[in-house]
Amino acid sequence: MDGLLLTPGQYASLWIGVQITVQLLLWSFALGVVLSLVFGLMRLSENRFARGFALCYVELFRGISSIVLLFWFAFALPILLDIGQPSRVVMAVLALGANMGGYGAEIVRGAILSVPKGQHEATTALNLSGFHRVRHVILPQALPVILPPFGNLTIEILKGTALVSLVGLRDLAFSAEILRTARTQMEVPIGVPELFINVLVIYFVLAQIISFTFRLFERLVNARYRQRTGRRAVDVSGGAAAPATAPGDATGGT
């Protein structure tokens, strides 16, 4: 073994794992975002019980290590609930997503509190419903505060996916382990350091993709606070259905 590259067959084997890892990441992220929003908002609810329930959730799922959560969801819960053997992927997603939600809810809560009180009061004065307040006024302003820590959290989830090999899921880490144990029987023997350098690079690339995506999104969100681009200005005037003056207004916005 001179080079660091593996054979196509070995890469194909790792690729199976990458697909599982990415799948786990995306679903856990989606679930984590939903749980973060729901429980973050509930933490600020005027209803005492909703607040208490959300606090319990946060404390529970932040406080337990992901590996213990994973064992719970994969092994203990199916027996307790007597639901046979559900898909391991689903149970892993539940564990990882719930874990992310525990941290994410606190981030969402903090970000919403960072939106000035006057903004909340203006939504009351305009008589907006709870949903529209959050959707159109509070969240857009909380988003720049939410995004950077959510980027970190998503990378944590990526790292957390490597634990699923312990409940028998064939993710990237598990695929590497399969190659390692089978290395002596292969036509082209594989060096352990080379193998894990490849695994390391793949995880690194995945993390970089996450970072890049979040940075891009942050830039887009922050751009909304700066001067409007000409394109957007045209959109607004176009929607205003005022043909006589719209073109003039459009240039005024640039």
């Binding site: 000035p116 006057g118 903004q119 009061e121 203006a122 004065a125 305009l126 008589n127 907006l128 419903s129 529209h132 159109h136 006024v137 857009p140 302003q141 909304r224 606070y225 409007r228 607004v236 929607g239 205003a240 259905a241 005022a242 916005g253």
Partner: peptide, 29 residues
Amino acid sequence: NLFPHLSALENIALAPIKAQGRSKDDANQ
């Protein structure tokens, strides 16, 4: 207490559209 992420027009049209259910064109007008 204007909404900093919305244009002047969007600030004004938001409540008519979202709280009063008026059409976007109408509210922008």
